[in-house]
């Protein structure tokens, strides 16, 4: 049991890491789409500069989640892939277009019009991907995704789509946009900083509204999440802390403590994902697939954990170096840092 839990927790932590890093990169794309005002160009340039060196590394967290899932909980991976075929495929299209268009925009030497076209594809797919990702995560806990005796998806290929999964899709989109805007306040200067400060506050409000909507809908559409939100022993403390992080992030934005705001926004996002994971426990796919029912044999799990540990030993210092090289200057120059 402990092995299963450890591997499951690792997958959840990798998902948190993806939300905080890759999610924020997608959020950057959203701000590219929503760039406006006199500093439109500067906003886009800052986004590009901020995510350019790191988005590919950040993206690998998602691949890690997938590999841990199919090694540690293979039947769950099969069931999820089958019942969520449509949104996963759309997510893939979004991921491919986002990454390719971002790179082409940076390197295509075909002129301004070409650049603008790539920018549009990049930013549109940066919205599409988190919508799908959020909807997928919401659908996992909705209880609507079930397999028939031959492993076929019951309820058709659109069973994942509901008001609840739509709300979680919006929640992920708003949350990623919020994270990106908050991170960018640390990297921006002058007027540009004000732009992203305003955007961060707006996205924070949108995140709150989407979260409230999803929570309300969960009462009807996702009883397990609702129970996790309200009825478990850890529910109240968790929400208290999440709420404190959210309020604290707002306060820090208003009072221009941007490094603190970044920390609190990241904490808030972390707690939201962990809270979802905790209310979903012990299910991987509600109501038929649990950690225990889908777990690979203990030997595989133990080796996988060992491999993940070894991998982390090389990964963590490398990531530290990457962020030190590309994110250090901004931090040192920040008066509150």
């Amino acid at each position: 049991m402990n092995l299963q839990l450890a591997v499951g927790a690792t997958a959840l932590l990798a998902l948190v890491a993806y939300a905080l890093s890759g999610g924020a990169d997608l959020g950057g794309g959203i701000w590219d789409l929503l760039a406006s005002g006199p500093r439109k160009r500067e906003q886009r340039a800052l986004v590009e500069q901020a995510i350019g060196p790191i988005w590919e590394a950040n993206h690998v967290w998602l691949i890690l989640v997938v590999t841990v899932l199919f090694t540690g909980f293979p039947p769950a991976f099969a069931a999820i892939s089958t019942t969520l075929f449509v949104p996963l495929t759309v997510l893939l299209v979004g991921i491919v277009l986002r990454g390719a268009a971002f790179t082409f925009r940076a390197y295509d030497e075909g002129g301004v019009a070409v650049e603008r076209r790539w920018g549009l594809i990049f930013s549109m797919s940066s919205v599409l991907a988190p919508l799908m990702l959020g909807a997928i995560v919401g659908a996992l806990s909705s209880g609507r995704l079930r397999l028939g005796p031959a492993g076929e998806p019951l309820g058709g290929s659109m069973a994942w789509l509901s008001w609840f999964s739509a709300a979680t899709g919006l929640l992920a989109t708003a949350l990623f946009a919020f994270l990106a805007a908050v991170y960018l306040t640390v990297e921006a200067r002058g007027e540009l900083l004000e732009d992203f400060r305003r955007r961060a506050i707006a996205a924070g409000v949108a995140t709150f509204l989407a979260a409230a909507t999803a929570a309300g809908l969960s009462w009807r559409e996702s009883p397990l999440v609702f129970e996790g939100l309200t009825a478990r022993a850890w529910s109240l403390p968790l929400h208290a802390v999440t709420g404190m992080a959210a309020v604290g992030a707002f306060w820090a934005l208003v009072t221009r403590r941007f490094v603190l705001a970044r920390f609190l926004a990241a904490a808030q996002a972390t707690l939201i994902v962990l809270g979802w994971g905790a209310s979903q426990y012990p299910y991987l796919l509600v109501p038929d697939v649990t950690l225990a029912s889908a777990a690979a044999p203990p030997r595989t799990l133990a080796l996988l954990l060992g491999a993940l540990g070894l991998g982390a030993l090389t990964l963590i210092p490398s990531l530290w170096l990457l962020f030190r090289v590309f994110k250090r200057r901004a931090r040192v120059a920040d008066p509150h840092g």
């Binding site: 690998v60 890690l64 590999t67 841990v68 199919f70 090694t71 595989t300 080796l303 491999a307 991998g311």
Partner: peptide
Amino acid sequence: GMPFSLEG
């Protein structure tokens, strides 16, 4: 699955 995770 393990080589895939290591490849990650």
